[in-house]
């Protein structure tokens, strides 16, 4: 999981780059509390997926089920978000 920082909403979660659907839209998703931002700079208040399915606020599909997935290096390149990536943490993938 390529992460860009720590979640300011819960204080402990890592903010990973998530691809939410086939359209390959990139999200910043906290793997601890599911706070979502649409850009790696995490501007403003976060969005939260709708329960009980954790539906993505953009595409309305579950963020934890395929085709949603943590972004690959190629997808991070395509999103042009490399400059925001702090590291790759394999346990979170």
């Amino acid at each position: 999981m390529y992460y860009v920082g720590t979640c300011r909403c819960c204080g402990q979660g890592l903010l990973g780059i998530r691809i939410c659907c086939e359209d390959e839209i990139g999200l910043i998703l906290c793997e601890e509390c599911e706070a979502i931002w649409l850009h790696p700079t995490c501007p403003g208040s976060p969005l939260f997926p709708q329960q009980p399915d954790s539906a993505c606020p953009r595409c309305n599909r579950p963020i934890w089920q395929p085709p949603a997935h943590w972004a690959t290096q190629a997808e991070v390149d395509r999103l042009d978000w490399n400059e925001y990536v702090l590291s790759d943490w394999e346990n979170g993938s």
Partner: peptide, 29 residues
């Protein structure tokens, strides 16, 4: 505690905090 989260169920998600992850970046309660 309902189905959901990366682990598939909130109970499993919370139980991540029953053990340390010393190599995990940042803090982990």
């Amino acid at each position: 505690y309902a189905p959901g989260s990366q682990e598939g169920h909130r109970l499993k998600h919370v139980l991540r905090h029953d053990n340390d992850q010393p190599s995990r970046p940042g803090l982990h309660g």
